[in-house]
Amino acid sequence: MMLEGSRETMDPEIYDQMYNDMRKQLGLDRSIPYQYISWMGNVLQGNFGFSSVYKQPVKEVIKAPMKNTVIMNIVSLVFVFAITIPLGIATAVRKGSTFDSATQVLTIIGYSLPGFIIAILFIFVFAVKLRLFPISGVSSPGASYTGIKYLLDRAYYLVLPVTAMVFSSLAGIVRYVRATMVETLTMDYIRTARAKGLREKVVIYSHAFRNALIPFMTILISWFLSIFSGSVVFENIFLYPGMGRVMINSLMQQDFMVVLAMQLFYIILSLAGYLLMDLAYVLVDPRVKLA
């Protein structure tokens, strides 16, 4: 293996020979388009290249972080779904009430705060001052739990990052859901439904909500895509070994094979997201047909 100082200590001719051999072996002597196409070819065969820092195939390097990131994002997706939709509907239904105004003010503050400030505040309050949750990490260091205990331990470490993530994306979505619901509730068919004497619950949940689903789907899926790249910030603050941290570390250490694979993943994810969005439209609204 050649080291950084090899250039000074080695015979220049042998050094050049080895240097060129290495370039050839890595394919760096070819033109950039050729390199790109061969990289694409390899990717299609499932070969993402070799990480120069971890000395492992890229696939191995990003396997575990990807799992961690997906877990974190799915968990926060569930919570955001569970909180924003009921809250948005409740504020829309009680439009103009104190509850609604308070939510409006809170949400405007919520979506103006950058994620990392929310995360810092959460760490300060819950980890530093109250000492309720661990500051960072993914599981108790040195512990080898199994089964339910392992899951609980993981969950304990996830609480703070997930809460911060949910909190920072809550506000925008609640506002959106509320706006959509308010608009839907002014529609004629809602008046008709009420005039028929349907119970208010039925009016809201099966007449209004069904019709507001399309915009919901749009915002939720595009939000889900954005948190994947947004979780870079949270992973960095909570030292959570996810893709974002691997991405930052690889960039800093110029491990570009890993960076390329990451970027590819993010783009595939966003393409898949858009496809999913279109499919979801068909699912929630029978009027929409795939051309």
Binding site: I248, L251, M252, Q263, I267
Partner: peptide, 13 residues
């Protein structure tokens, strides 16, 4: 459709 933050990071680096 490009994921914003990772791409901006790569470009900036």
């Amino acid at each position: 459709g490009l994921p914003f933050l990772p791409l901006a990071m790569i470009l900036s680096y």
